[in-house]
């Protein structure tokens, strides 16, 4: 979760190091994946069904986006080239993992 490098940014000219940007995006991807797995287990244990679970997933992802922004001290431009990297990217990427772990935990706890 730790953005390792800083990129300089200016109004008309993009000066940033692509490698640092890549590494920042990778850490975001990892934290999102981790969160979707943990969120799935939590949703399963709490016994969410139907729409509730998906709402929970989007809630978790939204909170994650906000935490990323907070981690970047709300100056996203220092670490990424646009807000989309934090808010939008990978929003749906963890859905498959989420559904799997949700189902898994739900079945173990509630079905049998």
């Amino acid at each position: 979760m730790d953005p390792r490098g800083k990129e300089k940014q200016s109004d008309d000219l993009q000066i940033f190091s692509a490698e640092n940007l890549q590494s920042n995006m990778k850490s975001i991807y990892y934290s999102r994946t981790f969160l979707s797995i943990v969120g799935g287990v939590v949703a399963g244990i709490w016994g969410f069904t139907g729409l509730m679970g998906f709402v929970f997933y989007f809630l978790v992802m939204a909170i994650a986006s906000m935490l990323f922004a907070a981690k970047a001290k709300f100056s996203v431009r220092t670490y990424f080239d646009s807000w989309n990297r934090i808010v939008v990217d990978g929003f749906l990427g963890g859905l498959m993992s989420f559904v799997l772990f949700w189902t898994f935990a739900y079945d173990i706890v509630h079905i049998f």
Partner: peptide
């Protein structure tokens, strides 16, 4: 099959990039 697709995220976490 669900496992096959859903575990990809877990693998990328435990096995690295």
């Amino acid at each position: 099959f669900l496992n096959l697709f859903g575990l990809r995220g877990l693998f990328s976490l435990i096995l690295g990039e």
